[in-house]
Measured scan of single mutants.
Amino acid sequence: AEKTGIVNVSSSLNAREGASTSSKVIGSLSGNTKVTIVGEEGAFYKIEYKGSHGYVAKEYIKDIKDE
């Protein structure tokens, strides 16, 4: 099942092309942005936001229960 997560940073969080800190940054998400978690790979979540996919470090995403 898809989960919703909240970007848990004070400034912004980089979204990357792949599940690695050396992957190209494809965008950034500001704190408290809601994202859909579609998968996980190592220390990263694969997320969907406004129709695009990217990878973000798990430690900066807070899971919330689907309402």
Rank of each mutant, 00 (worst) to 15 (best):
A1S: 13
A1M: 14
E2M: 15
E2P: 15
E2D: 09
K3R: 14
T4G: 04
G5C: 09
G5D: 02
I6P: 02
I6A: 03
I6Q: 05
I6W: 11
V7C: 06
V7Y: 02
N8I: 13
V9S: 12
V9I: 10
V9A: 10
V9K: 08
S10W: 05
S10Q: 12
S10D: 11
S11W: 06
S12R: 13
L13Q: 03
N14K: 12
A15S: 04
R16L: 15
R16D: 02
R16E: 02
E17C: 13
E17R: 05
G18F: 14
G18I: 06
G18V: 06
G18E: 12
G18R: 13
A19S: 06
A19N: 05
A19Q: 03
A19V: 07
S20T: 10
S20G: 06
S20K: 06
T21C: 15
S22T: 12
S22D: 14
S22E: 12
S22H: 12
K24N: 08
K24A: 09
I26R: 01
G27W: 13
S28E: 11
S28N: 09
S28P: 07
S30Q: 14
S30D: 11
S30Y: 09
G31M: 10
N32W: 12
N32C: 15
T33N: 04
T33R: 05
T33G: 04
K34E: 06
K34Q: 09
K34I: 14
V35H: 00
T36E: 03
T36Q: 08
I37F: 01
I37K: 00
V38Y: 05
G39R: 01
E40P: 01
E40V: 07
E41Q: 08
G42C: 07
A43G: 12
A43D: 15
A43P: 13
A43E: 15
F44G: 00
F44V: 01
F44T: 01
Y45E: 05
Y45F: 08
I47Q: 02
I47N: 02
I47L: 00
E48V: 14
E48Y: 11
Y49E: 02
Y49F: 13
K50W: 07
K50E: 13
K50A: 11
G51I: 02
G51Q: 06
S52R: 13
S52T: 13
S52H: 09
S52V: 13
S52E: 09
H53M: 09
H53P: 05
G54C: 12
Y55H: 00
Y55G: 00
A57M: 12
A57G: 09
A57F: 10
A57H: 08
A57R: 11
K58D: 01
K58T: 02
K58H: 01
E59S: 07
E59C: 11
E59N: 07
I61P: 01
I61G: 00
I61S: 01
K62V: 13
K62R: 12
D63V: 15
D63P: 10
I64R: 03
I64F: 08
I64V: 13
K65E: 10
D66F: 14
D66K: 09
D66W: 15
D66Q: 11
D66H: 12
D66V: 14
E67T: 12
E67F: 11
